[in-house]
Amino acid sequence: MIAFEHVGKRYGGRFEALADINFSVQRGEMVFLTGHSGAGKSSLLRLIMRLERPSRGRILVAGYDIDRLHYSQVPFYRRQIGVVFQDHQLLSDRDVFSNVALPLEIQGVEPHEAARRVRAALDKVGLLHREKALPIELSGGEQQRIGIARAVVNKPALLLADEPTGNLDPQLSADIMRLFEDFNRIGTTVMIASHDLALIARLRHRVLRLREGRLIADEHAAREVV
């Protein structure tokens, strides 16, 4: 699903955010990306979302060399990726329903079909009863679940999350992670950047560890290779 081949990323020609990153993620895998802040987690996710282009190497996502995409194809590429942000990035002037419907609106899905899918996604995250609420009326955990509903509403093959539990207490964090596991169970490839090591350790999924822009470990928690 994702393959990095000798990927490097420099900013402004000097600062090396990522250096010689090699890994591949299979379709249907669930992977954690960890490391201190500044280790390059966000840069790596931004490369996958093609918000940045690598300075070196090649990135394949779902078989595309994404650096070769014409800029007019980029929006269509992004529609295949669901993204969850730490600060959830909900639009404050739209209610929960329209926030979740946004990706479908962009793709031009018929309103009737869109409504059905939005409700299905809201039901999945357990917030169907809040569809009329404005984001500001929701708790942090609820807001994050709306962010997840929006990320999965168009059934993306790949779900990326950047510190999705960064602002949540442990109980809520565990709930959110379980939600990601549910989506992973039905075939979605999931990649989560997080520095919540205790939580990651409990969940027993593959972990990619970054330090100062280098991939220092690629370990399967289940095998206890520390």
């Binding site: 918000l51 992004r78 990035q89 639009l91 962009i106």
Partner: peptide
């Protein structure tokens, strides 16, 4: 913010 978000989730420039 709205423009950033919709761009992230695949809106075209025309949209």
């Amino acid at each position: 913010q709205e423009i950033e978000v919709v761009t992230l989730i695949g809106a075209t420039h025309a949209f």
